Every structure is written in structure tokens, then in C-alpha cells.
Simulated scan of single mutants.
Amino acid sequence: MTRLRSALWLPLFDELADPTAVARLAAEAEETGWHGVFVWDHLRWRAPVQQVADPWITLAAIATATECLRFGPMVTPLARRRPAKVARETATLDLLGGGRLTLGVGLGSDRFACELSATGEELDDRQRGRLLDESLEILTAAWSGRPVHHHSRHYTVDGISFLPRPVQRPGVPVWAAGLPGNVRPLRRAARHDGFVPVNLGHPDQLADIVTTVTGLRRPNTTPYDIAVPLPPGADPAPYAKAGATWWLAEFAPETVTLDQVRGVLRDGPADIGIDMERTR
């Protein structure tokens, strides 16, 4: 039996667009017993949001302001990032944090801010899925420390070694996000280290997801994470019983404030025991 781990899941908007302020929140969260701080990855958001911080710079600030909590982008749409650059960023960030980075990945969406269409990115979900999977192949190869030889229509990495390697071995843990009921993201997540269900409506949905992922991962017996976003005040216990290993305390992006986040973190993390065998 272990404990459900708890993390703040922060949209880096307006009052939270200051990396120094977010780093202070992370340090306070660590002192209060929280296990992680994860941040959104967006270029912009719909009104009334005006200010948006870069996640990678903010994560570097978090890494230097804390000692033991886990951190990372949750989630980064890899299809709009160059995988070779992300390989360097993730290895360096994991080194900076002493092996505490988790890389959350997903397709991204044009729905909330039109940020994909506004910057000329790929809009087709299937195509972005292919780009995501190919990027993850490159990252996995890069984290090995061996020369990467990847040639495709989308990406070329010709004999580059990405050293120094991440502290974590064989590489940075990857959590893949997806909508409940869509099996393709579950297959992707089963190949990696965790799953983040987006827009989860009920613990029964999560139980079905855990059953599916467990079946896809057999005979793999390595630890696996299921990270469930829930608003503060929601009861994470039914989700922990269904197989969640992390609770991500989520905040409304249009109204989040430093005081609101500080109030939640001072309430402390969830204190719920879980049976880890459900997530193996």
C-alpha cells in the first residue's frame, strides 16, 4: 500500500505568467508536502487571458527552487516542437533538477485559443499523432546517449549524440494524455510510463481505462502512473480506488490567481492510500 501523490497543475497565465512567482509557489508546495508541480504548455489562451509564460523557462526556475518534488510540462504538444531541441531541453532540465522531470505529451488542440492555426501548425489530429509518435521515438533514442540516426519525411537527426544523458534511466518518464474512449492514446500511453485522462467524467471511466492499459502493457510489470486532473474540493478517493496514482489539482485558466493556488497548496496534498498492483 502506498499513498496517492498530489501535484499542482498550473496554467501559466496572467498572475502565474511570472516564473519567479511560480517558483516560489513550487518551493512552498514542497515544504507543505506536495509531490509535484506541473505546468501547462501554451503560446496563448482565449480572452480574458492576456499574459502567458514559457513552460520550459518556468520549469527551470522550479527545478532550481526545489529539491524533491516532481515537475514537468503537462502536457506539451510535441507536434509543434522540434524533437531534437526537446531532447536537449529535457536532458538538461532533468540534470538541473537531479532526475525529477516528467514529460507529459499530447496532440494539443486548436479549440481553446486557435494557437495551432495562428502559427501555421498541423491541424489534422491523425497527422499530429504521427508526429507525436515519431518525436517520442527520437526522444527515446536520444536519451540513450547513443548516436541517433532518424530519417523520415518529417524529421532528420543524422548521427547526433545527445550528451549528457538525463539523470533518470533509461530516460525521462513520459505520460501521454488522451480522451476517454479513444483507444489510440491508450496504446501510445501503454508504450510509455503513464496516462493522463483528459475530461474524465466519472471514476468508472477511469477503472475501464486502467483495465485497458493494463491489458496493453502485459507482461510489463514496471511501475505505471495514472494522473487524474480534478478541481480542488473534489474527492480523489474514488479515482484512487479505480487506479489513479496521482491527483493533479486543476485550476480554471481564465480566473486562476496566485492567492487561489496558495490557498489550495496550504490545504495540503491528499492523504489516501492506494493499491499499486492496480496500476501494474
Rank of each mutant, 00 (worst) to 15 (best):
S135D: 04
L12D: 04
D110T: 12
L230R: 07
V261R: 01
A23Q: 06
A249C: 13
T212N: 03
T212W: 03
G72A: 05
D208P: 00
A240I: 01
S109A: 14
D225W: 07
E122A: 12
D110A: 11
L136K: 07
E31L: 11
R218W: 12
L12P: 04
Q127L: 04
A118F: 09
R280E: 13
S161H: 10
D225P: 00
V167Q: 09
R146D: 15
R128E: 13
G268L: 04
G72C: 02
R80I: 03
P253V: 01
G215Q: 07
R46S: 14
T245L: 13
T221F: 00
R191D: 10
A87L: 10
L258M: 08
T255I: 12
R80L: 10
F112P: 00
V157F: 02
G273H: 11
L43Q: 13
D14R: 03
L16C: 05
A242M: 07
R80A: 03
A79W: 06
T90N: 04
A17W: 13
V183H: 11
S109E: 15
S117N: 10
W143R: 04
G99A: 02
A244F: 02
D124C: 01
A47F: 08
V37G: 06
L265P: 00
A23S: 05
P77C: 01
L230Y: 00
A113W: 10
L186R: 08
P147Q: 05
R70E: 15
A190E: 12
V198R: 05
A252L: 11
S117H: 05
G120P: 01
